[in-house]
Design a protein around this nucleic acid. Structure first.
Lengths: 356, 356
DNA sequence: CCTCCCGTTTGAACCGGTTTAGTATCTCCC
DNA sequence: GGGAGATACTAAACCGGTTCAAACGGGAGG
């Protein structure tokens, strides 16, 4: 029998056991398997625990024994705090957190630099990688630890689930929409393609070197649609500005609209960029879609509220979050890859090109 | 000496120790106190660990010994997933996550119902309560566990830090702004005051019973300003709609504007409600601020982008998050209460009342 | 009266580490 | 040559529980 119920004044399970003269197993059972105890003893245990100010089994210790933490981890591409300024990421987080709620799981946002100091020690059962970086220190930490994980929007990785959309098809549908309207002079507003702080018109080589899978795929989608319409992709300017954000979209659009001849339609690789483009058009005194059409990508909540309401490619952000979480909770050997649908949403920001 | 380096095939610290014929303490030191080991042995340990596929000390076990998890918990008032649809909450989260990033801490979103099942076992060192509920099962779980915590925007609780704003003064400044402009017929758009699903014009008794401290304080602020202007508070209709959100604001505003005489200015208790009010004014064919002025509260990012740009009371959401986190990391015996500044931001949605 | 069974309770192993208080060896210095 | 200090490493206690096989006691059945 243990004799050290009170060590250092801390009230532990052993304290309670000793106070009652029962074994620690009994106290543990009172909390975890109440049905294994007679009602009388169980009440006595719980009562004594309350008197002693014992708040129940220490979760850390319990977890160590059980080997399960009841928490899902989340790694975001950039610093975690950036996720909160990206409406698409926020929706994704909402989806994940809905599942966590249903399953009584904590959601652990794993911050820390790419070095992965936090990822190496975060207390989680599995991890969602909402990122595209092929190998990042955080992801490496997860792999080393042998934790199950899924990648969202990124590359397909061995032994990991995958959730994403058909970026290529989505982008192609946006481009086709404009081509069908009769546009022949397009411009593309790109998110930063390579992590080098460069700004300008990205040539084909740079397009191909795009760091993010989603960026590459969307560019391919645009290009395939343009070529399918028998137009020349090399005549389409792909403008890149840093850092990613609405202002980048605004400046890229301004540059495109200042060209001669100016494009009659702008393909923005995200809604955030597209909203910047709307601002740039207003700056230039151009009407949308009278003088220039704008099409985004994402269909974030602000897209429908924009002036004019933004034509864009809808992707199910929340659903991506839900799927990612569920894939971790109920892994299916058969289908560990989920490709969610995209859909062109035509609103007011796109129309036929102006008469020459 | 231990002899069970490999139990069940799992590679543990003991596995590595046995493989080398050194003690477990030595292996532990190789990771945690490398300077205590000779360079030669340290390299041998780390090398063998790599060969054996040992990914370093199991964080859970390390944590149990050390008693520190390196994670901050966050409890939100409503289901956690709601936080992601509230722009103010998102900014707050961003603030918290910035500090976590700087400090290499994980941020644990504690979901789960008010029962507190998750809160009872979440692996965190301290908790931020972004909520107002005086006693909620989740908060009770935190208190029982003896975890340090701070309350944000809620009541002042014993043994807990506090971060908030002067809601009363902010609200008063909003009301005073309208009164100074010459308005004499005001209407208030309230968030749900009591949790009973009721809709309608809240009388004084109901106003005083408001569940959230922030709601109560803002109403008091409005009232004090009105009374200071020698006007009659009981003539000011306080319209309440559920559930909280933009649509509630729209319907409340519609009801107020349908009155005869209609108010010439609307005080919305949040920007989300105010944006709904702008929509209602548009629905009714009224111009803002020509026919009716609208003032919000929060200054969320969307407020400046609204049409017209919203006059509102700015509060530093991100800074609240930062302060809350820092208060937990560096508790100061002297000042455990932080009251952040509010500021009226006059934009285009408020102006003098129409000529009669 | 003996057995068997079942509901309770317990001892002991285990989860995977960290840490403290040493011990052994080596170096330095007079 | 002997003692003081460093240096490098280890044994054992500890963190706070969970779990499983076994023990116990009492009632039912034969």
């Amino acid at each position: 029998m243990e004799t050290d119920g009170r060590r250092g004044g801390r009230v532990t399970l052993a304290t309670v056991a000793d106070a009652l003269g029962v074994s620690r197993a009994t106290v543990s059972n009172a909390y975890n398997h109440p049905e294994r105890l007679s009602a009388a003893l169980r009440d006595r245990v719980l009562g004594t625990a309350r008197e002693l100010g014992y708040a129940g089994p220490h979760p850390l210790a319990a977890t160590l024994s059980r080997g399960r933490v009841n928490a899902l981890g989340l790694i975001y591409e950039d610093p975690m705090s950036f996720a909160f300024s990206d409406p698409a990421a926020v929706l994704f987080l909402q989806g994940v957190s809905e599942v966590c709620e249903d399953e009584d799981l904590a959601l652990v946002l794993i911050s820390g630099g790419p070095a992965g100091a936090v990822a190496r020690v975060a207390l989680v059962d599995a991890v969602i990688c909402y990122c595209d970086v092929p190998i990042d220190g955080r992801l490496a930490a997860i792999v080393d630890r042998g934790l199950p994980f899924v990648v969202v929007d990124g590359p397909r990785l061995p032994n990991a689930g995958h959730v994403g959309i058909d970026d290529r098809r989505g982008a192609a549908s946006a481009a086709r929409h404009l081509l069908d309207l009769g546009h022949t002079r397009l411009g593309v507003i790109a998110m930063p393609l390579v992590d080098d702080g460069w700004e300008g018109t990205a040539d084909r080589d740079r397009q191909d070197r795009a760091r993010y899978r989603a960026s590459r795929e969307r560019l391919i989608g645009y290009r395939e649609a343009v070529e399918a319409a028998a137009q020349d992709w090399s005549a389409v300017a792909v403008e890149e500005r840093v850092p990613y954000g609405r202002d980048a979209g605004r400046r890229a659009a301004a540059a495109l609209l200042a060209r001669d001849p100016a494009p009659t339609a702008l393909l923005a690789m995200s809604d955030e960029l597209a909203l910047g483009a709307l601002a740039a058009a207003a700056d230039a005194g151009l009407s949308v879609p009278g003088d220039v059409s704008v099409v985004g990508f994402d269909d974030v909540p602000g897209a429908a509220d924009a002036h004019p309401a933004l034509t864009t490619v809808r992707q199910p952000h929340r659903e991506k979050g839900r799927r990612a979480a569920e894939l971790l909770l109920r892994p299916t050997a058969t289908a560990d890859e989920h490709r969610l649908p995209v859909e062109l949403v035509v609103r007011a920001s796109s129309g036929p090109p102006p008469h020459r």
